[in-house]
Amino acid sequence: MATIETAEKSANGANEILTYESVDISYDGLKVVSDVSFALHEGECLGIVGESGSGKSTLIRAAMGLLGAGGLVTRGDIWYRGLDLPDVPRDEMRRINGEEIAMIFQDAGNALCPSRKIGDQLYESMLEHGNAERAEFTENISRLLERLRFDDTDRILGSYPFELSGGMRQRIGIASAMMMNPKILLADEPTSALDVVAQKDVVEEMKIIKDVYHTSIIIVTHNIGVARELSDTLLVMKDGHAVEYGPTNDVLTNPQSDYTKKLISSVIGLKR
């Protein structure tokens, strides 16, 4: 198994921005994540792959304090700029979430209110993090959407969620996470509910976020193709354990663990 040192090298000596140290996570006393360590560096995209129930979503939810009532980080630390996130008070966490660490989910479209226009909803979430004039907001959001290569931003902002396709709603979800220009973007299966064409659009959008905004990204996905396309480093999870960790290319071309080998061989690729 590649160590954290190998991964550090791959990120060209950039600073660690989020560090997991020997993290255990339990739900109602049942351990679901066991002794996981990795580091996310500035500007890096880390992919976490594994199948349902392997603990990959739980891992990134822990950083946001979104484990829910029964969930607890029972051992280890999650460091972000000198703060051990599981110990950060709720009020401080409310400020960090969204402004500094943002998260997007598998179906961001479901998080949108069905009866209000997209522009109104995005403005409201902006107000939660401070004052912004509507005109200034509209200018900023239009610029953001244009950079993320949305066509026809006025129409999108004036639409209700049901007037947009699932893929478009997901891209809006990602754009809304980027409104506060967070340092870290955590993405939990952002393409899994989409067909291949919409998936490609979302992947392209995430690439722009990485290249233009230099946001550090963790993407949780069970799709090896998406991980290969986006991530610099790859962490493979199996039954709550990290079974492999290293530069994406090394892990995919020369997998060390039996599980990673099985995972890669299960992918039914296109024979071009």
Partner: peptide, 21 residues
């Protein structure tokens, strides 16, 4: 399917194939 993938005739099919990661 093999012929479609290797030699797509329609623009939409080409786009579909290009979208596969």
């Amino acid at each position: 399917p093999g012929d479609i993938v290797r030699n797509p005739q329609d623009d939409y099919t080409k786009m579909l194939i290009d979208s596969v990661l």
